[in-house]
């Protein structure tokens, strides 16, 4: 598949169809890939693909806003929704993006992999297993043991938005876990226990803003958190300041979050951010029957309304009287 990808990219570049291509390359060690920008045909050898490519490369499409040319990139199913949302939000023009869809075999959680094996050289997805190469040996491991949490409830392993697609279109669904199970688990707790749970999480936050900066949906010219007047948030990192940060960010995820899970992956202090954003996603889906990143024509939930909202009325007694 890598070879196929390289050939497509080489052709696109040599024909002048794109200015550059955004893909995955090997990082400082085999288990750490890193995004790469390919500008010339001879660089395509750097491109790799494996279950160790977590990055949502659509984030880098922010950079093309001011240019005029076309850009190519490789996307997993989950990342494809970002492209739809960016088009919907008028951040990119679809015709300026060449999307190479790749059937994802599920992404490996690096921490789980490192716990299970030492000295891993390569990982490959095959059916229900991952083939893990350690030295001369190839171990076959059940996917469930190594998958990233978000992949367990994956609904779109293959990009449905693409110009080229690699490999076979065989939808894979891992496990039977509901995608909102972890949210519901929290919902069952009494309100004060939830407060204590999130308090402990927010307390650790160092406000490095990695969760914001890695988010494909954070494309505001001036972020609300950087605005000096009005000043929404101080630089101080008290638990309440941090709570303000995370709540406002969660609010801004309404109708935008596609659960690429990048925020949670990059958080250095391990805040379970998906448990926050998934809540928003869940309510948006249940109240407004809206799922971000599916079709460009879909209207985001908060820019529209109906005079009678039956879905809301069941909870109306709680919100309005």
């Amino acid at each position: 598949m890598e070879q196929e990808l390289r050939e497509i990219v080489r052709k696109l570049l040599e024909e002048g169809a794109i200015e550059y291509f955004i893909g995955y390359a090997e990082g400082f060690e085999p288990l750490h890939t890193t995004p790469c920008f390919i500008e010339r045909g001879e660089q395509v050898q750097a491109l790799v693909w494996s279950p160790l490519c977590p990055y949502n490369l659509a984030r880098y499409l922010h950079q093309m806003k001011n240019g005029a040319g076309k850009v190519g990139l490789v996307v997993k199913g989950c990342d494809a929704r970002a492209i739809v949302e960016l088009v919907k939000g008028n951040q990119i023009q679809r015709e300026r993006v060449v999307v190479v869809g790749i059937p994802c075999q599920g992404q490996v959680d690096l921490a789980k992999l490192e716990d299970a094996f030492e000295g891993v050289e390569a990982v490959e997805g095959k059916g229900d297993t991952f083939l893990v190469t350690v030295g001369e040996k190839v171990h076959s491991v059940e996917k469930e043991r190594l998958l990233r949490e978000k992949c367990f409830s994956c609904r779109h392993p293959i990009s449905f938005e693409y110009d080229f697609v690699l490999g076979e279109m065989s939808p894979l669904v891992y496990g039977s876990e509901s995608e909102f199970a972890m949210v519901e688990e929290l919902e069952r707790l009494p309100v004060e226990e939830r407060r204590a749970f999130w308090r402990a999480q927010f307390e650790r936050c160092i406000r490095c803003y990695a969760c914001r900066d890695i988010c494909y949906a954070c494309y505001c010219q001036e972020c609300i958190f950087e605005s000096k007047a009005p000043r929404w948030l101080e630089k101080t990192t008290t638990p309440l300041d941090n709570q303000t940060y995370h709540l406002i960010r969660a609010w801004h995820m309404v109708g935008r979050c596609i659960d690429c899970g990048e925020c949670e992956r990059v958080c250095p202090v391990g805040i379970p951010l998906r448990r926050l954003y998934k809540k928003v996603e869940k309510e948006v889906e249940q109240l407004f029957d809206y799922r971000a990143g599916m079709r460009v024509e879909d209207l985001p939930p908060l820019v529209t309304f109906a005079a009678e909202e039956p879905a809301l009325s069941s909870r109306q007694d709680r919100s309005e009287r």
């Binding site: 890193t34 790469c36 984030r59 990695a210 900066d213 630089k235 990059v266 250095p268």
Partner: peptide, 28 residues
Amino acid sequence: RELSRRCLGCGVCTYLCPTCHCFDLTDV
């Protein structure tokens, strides 16, 4: 420039760096 294309401009490297020491003063 090459490097900055990949960099998101977040604060992970500086905040986790044991020798980075820049600060800002703010009145609350």
